[in-house]
Design a protein around this nucleic acid. Structure first.
Lengths: 138, 138
DNA sequence: TTATATTTGCAACAACGTTTCAATTAAATT
DNA sequence: AATTTAATTGAAACGTTGTTGCAAATATAA
């Protein structure tokens, strides 16, 4: 059994061709993927709508998370092991290189706790870093 | 001369009906606005495409800034005085209430500096807070 | 192997956003 | 105040993104 199959089962999802293929795409990638990144990797034979639904099911299952970025595009990345269905547990920052456009998780950087004005109850926080990555310097 | 006219001129923009109306909408609002929020406020007589261009010119002029949020919708808010054409200078956090959906700037909270892994050069950072606002508690 | 509940593919639809081009308008100049 | 010039606007057309409803296909439990 592939690691992808295993991951799907462990998170309570049925194993289907469509899901395995998308899962493999994430596992092969170091960076966060947009919808069109994924389509480029898995080819065109898979239905567009199915892909949206696959991503939704992965997100709900705690397999991937959405990453906000300053450009407001939607990107997804694999979750750490600590995520479970309906229970995402993310404390890490995200970084987008403005030269190559690649986005990735920065597990070394925790999102700091901040004290907010009275009355506001903060339940989650995201830290989005933008700049230039190792490969694009110079 | 209205404050809106003045703001437009000071940031090097021609004063037009379309721009004045949009600027007033921002000045009247405590919260960040989506495209459709703005359209609701200014009415339908203004062309949709013009609005996109107006927002783009405001952003370039340092009058408004885009706010990322976890839902990946695009929202805009007025900039602080310290912003100028081509030179946005934002250190504040943003907060979105998951109940009422309103987003606003939290000037009391600065985006903290973090030390990133070697090789990455960070040029800007966003801190996005999500939770429940004063009005939606209970 | 069969039953059933989930997943898929298709059609249709709606929202968002951009580009091109001609017409209009703001503001600088005379 | 009229003219000139450069910026702005509106309309049409287009592409991408994302959703919903329904019938057909398929994964899993029995």
């Amino acid at each position: 059994m592939t690691n992808s199959r295993k991951a799907l089962k462990e998170h309570g999802l049925r194993v289907t061709e469509a899901r395995e293929v998308v899962m493999e795409a994430f596992r092969d990638s170091e960076q966060a993927l947009t919808i069109s990144d994924i389509r480029d990797r898995i080819g065109d034979d898979q239905d567009r709508i199915t892909l949206y639904r696959t991503l939704k099911s992965f997100e709900e299952a705690g397999l991937i998370h959405r990453i906000p970025d300053e450009e407001h595009s939607v990107k997804y990345a694999l979750c750490p092991e600590s995520c479970h269905p309906g229970d995402h547990d993310h404390h890490h920052a995200h970084f987008t290189c403005k030269v190559c456009g690649k986005t990735r998780c920065i597990y070394e950087v925790f999102v700091p706790r901040v004290s907010t004005p009275q009355g506001i109850r903060v339940e989650s926080a995201e830290l989005i870093l933008t700049g230039v990555c190792e490969n694009c310097q110079g």
